[in-house]
Amino acid sequence: MDFVTRGFQGRPRGRDDRLPPGQYLTGDFPVLSAGPTSNVDHDEWELWVATEDGTRHTWSWAELMALPAETVTVDIHCVTSWSKLDTEWRGVSLDTLLADVGTAADFAMVHSYGGYTTNLPLEDLLDGQAWVAYGYEGDDLRPEHGGPARLLVPHLYFWKSAKWVRGIELMLEDSPGFWEQLGYHDYGDPWREQRYQGD
């Protein structure tokens, strides 16, 4: 599969056609944070997935590095209205991480070092739509952009792509995350401009 074209598969390639409603293009990579930049050493870093029955799967940094990685080029859209086209990321697909995880869950709560959370439907993490990304534009992902590793779910507003990801809690029922508790949309589709609750 050619992941390089995934970000605009099925959409016309004109720049304007790749810009969701209400967004503007930026060449920068703005840093938005709800707290201090987390600096987690690789030897302390761990990723966990917890299922609804309490089963826990964990990966050390070395174990994450040993998994097959993908390089993807995608467009990203921040709810604060900037969009950035053709960003290149390297990471492990959630399909790979969740391949051996048995669950009946329909929802996921993503947890970050530093306490941030965000919720999304589990199906939006699967089928080549989401990665645990540790590389950006050929380099290690820098801490202010979520390194050593962040979630990357480019088809939703970028607050769903949690920086400093540390765990994924699989849930039978949906539950709001950090910004979703405070007026932001539970799903956050930029093409339907789902910024706030009720959008």
């Binding site: 910004w179 405070l182 007026g183």
Partner: peptide
């Protein structure tokens, strides 16, 4: 305080826990 977007997050100067969060949406203050 971190922000102002997507919202303001006020943290404790002692322990850095989140104390106050404020979001101004087009038609409400949360």
């Amino acid at each position: 305080v971190y922000g102002p977007d997507p919202g303001l997050v006020g943290r404790c100067p002692g322990c850095d826990d989140v104390l106050v969060r404020v979001v101004r949406t087009p038609d409400a203050v949360w």
